[in-house]
C-alpha cells in the first residue's frame, strides 16, 4: 500500500490511542478538527468519548455535514463505543436532540451495559471474512452501548455474553465500508480490528481505481 492517511476525529475522547494504533501499523494518522482536515483521507476513525459531547461539537465545528458527506460517498469509517453510537441508525436512551450519521443499520442503547460499576473487560471471538484477522481478542467495555438489533445487511463479526444476563450480543459489526465496535480495541495492545479496518480501506482504494469491482 502506498502512503495512507487515516483521519481520527479529534474533538474529544481517546484520540491519542487511535493515532498510536494506526502509527504502529505503519499508517499516518491525522487528527480531524476542521473540514480542511478531511482532505485526502482514505479512512476515518470516530474514537471513544462522550457521544453527546461529540455530537454537539460536530455540529458547532461545522464538521457534521462534511463528515456525513464523505461517509455517504463511501469513505471507510471505524467507530469505537461513542463512535458506534454516532454511526448507528437508531440510538435508544440518548438525548432526543442527539444527531448521528445513521449509516450502520442497528439499534444501540447508550450505556446499555450500565453505569461505570458495570464496565468490564473480557475476551471476544473475532470472526470476519476469509483472509481477514480473526481469533479471540481482549475487549474493554466502558459504559458501553449495547447493540440491541441489527439489520439484515449487517455482518456481526463478534459477539460477547452480557454480564449479568449472559445473553450473547453483537459487539463488532460491519456494513459495507462501515466498521464499529462497542468496546475499545484502541485501549489494548491487540491491533487486529485496526488491521481489519485498514484492509477495508485498501479494498475501497482498489474499488475506486477499478470501479467494476472485478478486483475482488
Amino acid at each position: 500500500m502506498s502512503v495512507v492517511t487515516i483521519g481520527v476525529l479529534a474533538l474529544q475522547g481517546d484520540v491519542r490511542e487511535h493515532l498510536a494504533a494506526l502509527g504502529q501499523l505503519g499508517v499516518t494518522g491525522r487528527p480531524v478538527l476542521t473540514e480542511r482536515d478531511l482532505d485526502g483521507l482514505e479512512g476515518l476513525v470516530l474514537p471513544g468519548g462522550e457521544s453527546t459531547t461529540l455530537s454537539l461539537l460536530l455540529a458547532s465545528s461545522g464538521l457534521f455535514d462534511p463528515v456525513a458527506a464523505v461517509i455517504g460517498a463511501g469513505l471507510p469509517v471505524f467507530g469505537t463505543c461513542a463512535g458506534l453510537v454516532l454511526l448507528a441508525r437508531e440510538v435508544r436512551g440518548g438525548r432526543p436532540d442527539q444527531r448521528g450519521f445513521g449509516v450502520l443499520d442497528c439499534a444501540v442503547r447508550r450505556n446499555g451495559y450500565g453505569r461505570q460499576t458495570e464496565s468490564f473487560e473480557t475476551t471476544v471471538e473475532l470472526s470476519a471474512g476469509p483472509n481477514e484477522p480473526s481469533g479471540s481478542m481482549p475487549a474493554i467495555f466502558i459504559r458501553a452501548p449495547l447493540i440491541e438489533e441489527v439489520g439484515t445487511d449487517v455482518e456481526v463479526l463478534a459477539r460477547a455474553s452480557t454480564p449479568g444476563t449472559g445473553e450473547l450480543r453483537p459487539v463488532v459489526c460491519r456494513q459495507g465500508s462501515v466498521l464499529a465496535s462497542a468496546f475499545h480495541p484502541e485501549l489494548t495492545a491487540d491491533r487486529r480490528l485496526h488491521q481489519l479496518f485498514l484492509a477495508m480501506v485498501e479494498r475501497a482504494a482498489v474499488d475506486r481505481r477499478e470501479p467494476s469491482g472485478v478486483a475482488g
Binding site: 481517546d14 484520540v15 491519542r16 468519548g49 462522550e50 466502558i142 459504559r143 485501549l187
Partner: peptide, 10 residues
Amino acid sequence: RGLADMLRGG
C-alpha cells in the same frame, strides 16, 4: 482508567 481516557478533551 479507561473511563478517564474517554473524558479526555472534555
